[in-house]
Amino acid sequence: MKKKHLIWTGFVLFLLILLTAATIWSLMAGEMKIPFRNMLSILKNQSGMEYAILTNIRIPRLLLAFSIGGALSITGAVLQGVYRNPLVEPYTLGISGGAALGVALVIVSGLNLKLGEFMLPVAGFAGAFATIFLVYFLGIKRDEININRMLLIGVMISFIASSGMMFLMSITSDDNLHSIIFWTMGSLDEPNTMLIKTMVIASLAGLFITIMFAQPLNALRLGEAKATHLGINASVIIRILFVVASLLAGLCVAVGGIIGFVGLIIPHLMRSIIGSDYRILLISSFLGGSFFLIVSDVLARTIISPNELPIGVITGIAGGLVFILVLSRSKQKAIS
């Protein structure tokens, strides 16, 4: 085994340990503390208040944080690779804007009250899907992919969607306004177990599929033309990855609302620690993103307990600060 592969294995183990620790903490922490040593017996007895808290609240949230954190991070890593732009994240491409507009439309028209709350994630996904569709078909002209055009179209759709949403917010009732704002801030509070299961399966499938494309993604680091010279069918690969990554991001937004920054900072952090080889970058981004979102969720639940902060607030502030710290450190290293 090469030294490189040993380092990779060690790093994945390290992340798994972090993730396990975060998982245990997230099950223990909350308004009602549940000691770790009681955890197994509570789950075995299948009764009582603590059992209800674990199975109805903490485990579902944990699963969502795990899958959404992981999924957003790999989509960020993939899209940054496809666009060769370090500032791209799932939401730059207008996916969150489209989803938010879809949700706002449903709330304003009252469809969620008539047909049920499940309409919100459905509308979110439909909005995200419509955006992906537009970006894809407007970005690809005469069979030729223009990465920059796709990026610009995504940014424009994002603007249009947020303006559309502001329009809806300005004409609707206070109650609806509150629902829209609450949704856009992002939350891991999801009562629908079907959605949670879908999210977990989709995130793991996303990880599996993108890892299959790790080598082509590695070649794309050199640009489309160079990747083609290396025998990679760049235009096909870019299309597949774009669709996979944005569907995954669309699903994340539909289920968890807009949880910003995870898809931007986690791949960056991982790249600066372990390098840009996608074979390790994808798996470590997934684990790192899961860890980050689980910890953020615990903080969101506990900082002003019994009230709860929107998780987007935590990921934005904590993520941003860590990111600035890392950037300033790496700059100093480069100078010295």
């Binding site: 070649a219 680091r221 050199l222 290396l230 025998g231």
Partner: peptide
């Protein structure tokens, strides 16, 4: 790019 020379040259084996 921020890739080591060896890794870069190894990419020639991709095909």
């Amino acid at each position: 790019v921020a890739i080591s020379v060896e890794e870069y040259v190894l990419m020639g084996r991709m095909p």
